[in-house]
Design a protein around this nucleic acid. Structure first.
Length: 416
RNA sequence: GUGGAUAUGGUGAAGCGGUUAACACAUACGACUGUGACUCGUACAUACGUGGGUUCAAAUCCCACUAUCCACCCCA
């Protein structure tokens, strides 16, 4: 039995990878319009980093991390998400000293030990964004607008943006208590998981899919009614700015995020097209995280999107590359000429193909067609003698004579 | 961690106990006699996820295992 890849770890093959490159290229282009810079962070971090940032009691930390001890007996973890690493780097290199406002994006693999299913893998890829140092709602609105802009640029109507506010350490505990007392009388209706979470994380019951919990939470108080004056003001100003620039959104006051560090604005890009995995991108504000990790008291906001999930939404699009020219040759002498021409043209910037071995003209034409080459140049003994050769436009089926020089051919091929 | 479904060539698949494992696509070569896409021809699974068992006989029945997919959970 041949060796296969590890469960939940996938190869991205030619044919599929072009779509990934398109997504990544678009992200870079759009994010840089908004002033962000790329940051590259390691895949391995000290385990403690994720316990501190994501939260000890979350599923990610409790049971989904790829953690092990390296040969120096250090406890390390393959990163399950990017925010913690970026903030660690931000603090470690004191980026805030030059400018408290850092605007960063990253892309790369993340690792979570979960059962794979549609849109969920053990090695998956995220493109993420982190902005630090701004409390004002202008940055919330900008991040959301940029995210919408990105999806619009990909040509996707789906997914749609949902937003909520989780309040701050001042008002969230008040809401939590209000929700608990509401839930208390209905405890019996809740599913086992939510009963268990009643103490640890009662907010979870709000987005539980079990019928009992949906029924039990009907008429539950909304976080939005419990926001303190500052949080309420922040949220309405954020909405106002989104309205001002025409970024479409819906308020979902039952949206809860899985990571402990979120405060105030949280959001998700959701779709109905991915089965159980509705979130294509998600994030929020994390005003306490940087200080929690030992850095200065600076606010932050960010999001991450799942590249596999975006790629799934882009299913129908065609990304195949096609060569500018295929050179067919007959005989060894023509092969040399063809090889020289091909190399000269590639050095000029044209994508050119030819067979590696001597084949029949028929066979070469078939290969040219298979590559979907835009032109085919045919070189034989006659052409060598006369110094020109037929250049065939494959789509039109027409052909004309061109001089056997890289300049002349380049001219023809690139003008079409 | 829990449930369910499925496992035949590069792909989609037929086959439902009996002896060469359909068919289509893809691929390779060739014919139409220096030109592709159409047409035609030839080649392409000693093999039916793995290991056992039942039987004179198994891809077809039974058992175990493994893998994949989907859902729960969780999340991007």
């Amino acid at each position: 039995m041949a060796i296969t890849a590890v469960k939940g770890f996938n190869d991205i093959l030619p044919g599929e990878v072009e779509k990934w490159q398109y997504i990544e290229r678009t992200a870079r282009r759009i994010f840089e319009l908004y002033g962000l810079s790329e940051i590259r962070i390691p895949i391995l971090e000290k385990t403690e980093l994720f316990c501190r940032s994501i939260g000890d009691a979350t599923d990610i930390v409790e049971k989904e991390m790829y953690s092990f001890e390296d040969k120096g007996e250090n406890k390390v973890t393959m990163r399950p998400e990017g925010t913690a690493s970026v903030m660690r780097a931000f603090i470690e290199h004191k980026l805030y000293a030059a400018d408290p406002i850092a605007r960063l994006y990253y892309m790369g693999p993340m690792f979570r030990y979960e059962r794979p299913q549609k849109g969920r893998y053990r090695q998956f890829h995220q493109i993420g964004v982190e902005l630090t140092g701004v409390t004002a709602p202008t940055v919330d609105a900008q991040v959301l607008t940029m995210l919408s802009h990105f999806f619009a640029e990909l040509g996707l109507d789906e997914p749609s943006l949902q937003i909520n506010s989780l309040g701050c350490p001042e008002c969230r505990p008040r809401y939590r208590e209000a929700l608990k007392s509401f839930l208390f009388s209905r405890l019996e209706l809740l599913c086992e998981d939510c009963k268990r979470r009643y103490e640890t994380n009662p907010l979870r019951a709000l987005d539980c899919k079990s019928a009992g919990c949906i029924e039990a939470t009907k008429g539950a108080p909304s976080m939005l009614e419990y926001l303190c004056a500052d949080c309420d003001d922040h949220f309405s100003k954020t909405k106002g700015l989104l309205d001002l620039v025409g970024t479409r959104y819906a308020i979902n006051e039952r949206m809860v995020r899985g990571l402990d560090y979120y405060t105030r604005t949280t959001f998700e890009m959701v779709t109905t097209m991915l089965g159980a995995q509705s979130a294509v991108a998600a994030g929020g504000r994390y005003d306490g995280l940087i200080a929690e990790l030992g850095g200065p008291k600076l606010p932050g906001i960010g999001f991450a999107m799942g590249v596999e999930r975006v790629a799934l939404l882009l299913a129908e699009k065609e990304f195949a590359r096609r060569p500018d020219l295929f050179i067919a040759f007959m005989g060894e002498e023509a092969q040399g000429t063809a090889y020289k021409l091909m190399t000269d043209l590639q050095r000029k910037g044209a994508s050119v193909e030819m067979d590696y071995e001597v084949k029949s003209l028929k066979s070469q034409m078939r290969r040219s067609d298979k590559f979907n080459a835009r032109y085919t140049l045919i070189i034989g003994g006659d052409e060598l003698a006369r110094g020109t050769a037929p250049l065939k436009n494959m789509a039109a089926g027409t052909q004309e004579e061109v001089a056997l020089s890289a300049e002349a051919i380049y001219e023809q091929v690139k003008k079409g």
